[in-house]
Design a protein around this nucleic acid. Structure first.
Length: 291
DNA sequence: GCCCAGGCACTCA
DNA sequence: TGAGTGCCTGGG
């Protein structure tokens, strides 16, 4: 990878395994908008960033070289060599091999744990456009103003401190529905220090997961999402309804319990299970496998 | 109007 | 321990 700054843009070249559409549309994050083909706007790290990908390069703007080094390299996981991992995974089985070929540009983002936690609490029983909507309402109402881009105001996702000012009815007004008290429970546990998200990063997968399960409305699926997308714990293999259908259809040819799927995934994909999940999810969802 | 969506809590056997 | 059911809300 090499990059340089040209005015307010960072131009990135020679990067393998990077496709902005696949990265954003594989279900790991919610605060992004498609501007046009290969052109997206994201809100992360209290910034509004556009990303334009062409055949030869990826342009991040507006961004300084400092932002790029301090924020975006880590956020987009740019220092990791995905080619080696993909080779390892592709040897596991033909289905995963196909899924990797289908979307070789997927990367796992390093997101903010708090935002990730609340976003996935919101995700239950909702479709992605709805989740995005609720996260936006909450940001607009409780988060800090970031910037106005193309006449649209953008707001950061509120901190636990900021969000704990919300009342249940405020969150219901943000269309959180029955999840409103769950969000407040998470606020309370984080704000009081009962659960310290910063510390989870340093705990082993199982221990961190057990801690997260103490939050109301956080079950195995949501815990795994947070562990994978915010804490870099790639042993996590979130099993949602899509992955269940996809795995049943590709690997089992019958109905199977969530537990069995998790067990199978750990055996089959090992320490890279989480990345395998992303390839299978994107592949299966785009092709509507099992639906 | 009905059904379902990237789960979970709660209840009951 | 496992199966069954209800849940805000919006879109098809």
């Amino acid at each position: 990878m090499n990059y340089r700054q040209v005015k307010d843009k960072i131009i990135l070249k020679d990067i393998n395994s990077f496709n902005i559409e696949q990265i954003l549309e594989c279900g790991q994050c919610f605060r992004f908008y498609k501007i046009s083909e290969g052109h997206y706007l994201i809100i992360a790290k209290a910034k509004v960033l556009k990303i334009l990908q062409t055949d030869e390069e990826v342009i991040f703007y507006p961004a300084t070289i400092e932002d790029f080094k301090n924020l975006w390299i880590s956020y987009f996981d740019l220092n990791r060599d995905y080619d080696i991992i993909k080779q390892l995974l592709a040897e596991k089985d033909q289905y995963l091999n196909k899924a990797i070929d289908y979307a070789p540009g997927i990367r796992i983002l390093n997101q903010d744990p708090w935002e990730c936690l609340i976003s996935f609490i919101i995700s239950q029983n909702k479709q992605i456009p709805h989740i995005k909507q609720v996260v936006n309402h909450i940001s607009r109402r409780f988060g800090q103003y970031i910037d106005t881009v193309d006449n649209i105001d953008y707001f950061a996702f509120p901190t636990a401190e900021e969000l704990s000012k919300a009342k249940e009815e405020d969150l219901r007004a943000c269309k959180a529905g029955f999840r409103a008290p769950y969000i407040l429970d998470a606020c309370k546990k984080i704000k009081s220090g009962e659960i310290d998200l910063e510390k989870l990063k340093y705990l082993p997968y199982e221990e961190a997961k057990t801690t997260l399960l103490n939050i109301k409305a956080v079950g195995p699926k949501i815990a795994d999402c947070v562990l994978l997308f915010a804490f870099g714990k790639w042993e996590a293999f979130p099993v949602d309804i899509w992955i269940k259908r996809i795995m049943e259809s590709l690997y089992f040819n019958r109905e199977i319990s969530l537990n069995e799927i998790g067990h199978f995934a750990r055996e089959q994909f090992g320490n890279y299970a989480g990345l395998a999940q992303q390839y299978l999810f994107y592949y299966g969802r785009q092709l509507k496998i099992g639906k």
